[in-house]
């Protein structure tokens, strides 16, 4: 990745723990990379895996999910649901060729402002190393590969799509 291009992390923070921790990091004037864009949800259990997929599809290089520590969820067990979905989602993403470091689940409690800083900085460094995801462009590239391998089939599909 060229030095001046910063990766973009879409972060889903739960209101009670991680969002509050990020506020605490702000109040404490901790400094970290400006790569994250936070979407606030009330609970990490609200996070639909489709949000994560949409984020990657729309250009995020990484997705960070922040929730309360297991046992500490403000809504008792929302974070457990998030954890289960995350496990399955990671495998799906691997099948799609998206590296596991691009999706990160962190438990950050309201008093752990420094964790927010550490995690975002670490993830920024990881994503810089991995390079931009550029999922839309990759999809086009995959299409091109398909055309090379099975030109007749690809042409037929394309014709159908045009007439449909």
């Amino acid at each position: 990745m060229p030095e001046d291009t910063q990766p973009r992390i879409l972060a889903f923070f739960c209101n009670w723990c991680t969002y509050t921790a990020a506020d605490l990091a702000g109040v404490s004037r901790m400094k970290y990379a400006a790569t994250s864009r936070v979407v606030r949800v009330m609970c990490s259990g609200r996070i639909d895996p489709q949000f994560v997929l949409s984020a990657f599809a729309k250009g995020a290089d990484g997705v960070l999910i922040g929730g309360c520590h297991p046992g500490d969820c403000h809504y008792i067990s929302g974070n457990t649901k998030c954890l289960r979905r995350h496990r399955l989602l990671k495998r799906m993403l691997a099948d799609m060729g998206i590296e596991p470091e691009r999706l990160r689940l962190e438990w950050i409690s309201a008093s752990e402002g420094d964790r927010v800083k550490t995690v975002i900085n670490e993830m920024t460094a990881d994503l810089k190393r991995l390079g931009p995801l550029k999922l839309p462009e990759r999809c086009v590239a995959w299409d091109v590969e398909a055309i090379d391998e099975e030109p007749d089939h690809a042409e037929a599909v394309a014709k159908e799509a045009v007439h449909a």
Binding site: V41, M42, G45, R46, Q50, F51, S54, Y75, G78, R85
Partner: peptide, 24 residues
């Protein structure tokens, strides 16, 4: 909390202020 919203296979549940379309 919205846990049911994320789980519903039909997308039949909406959470006020945190609707799917708002977040998407």
């Amino acid at each position: 909390c919205g846990v049911c919203v994320a789980a519903c296979p039909s997308g039949a549940i909406t959470q006020n202020l945190f609707e799917d379309r708002e977040i998407f």
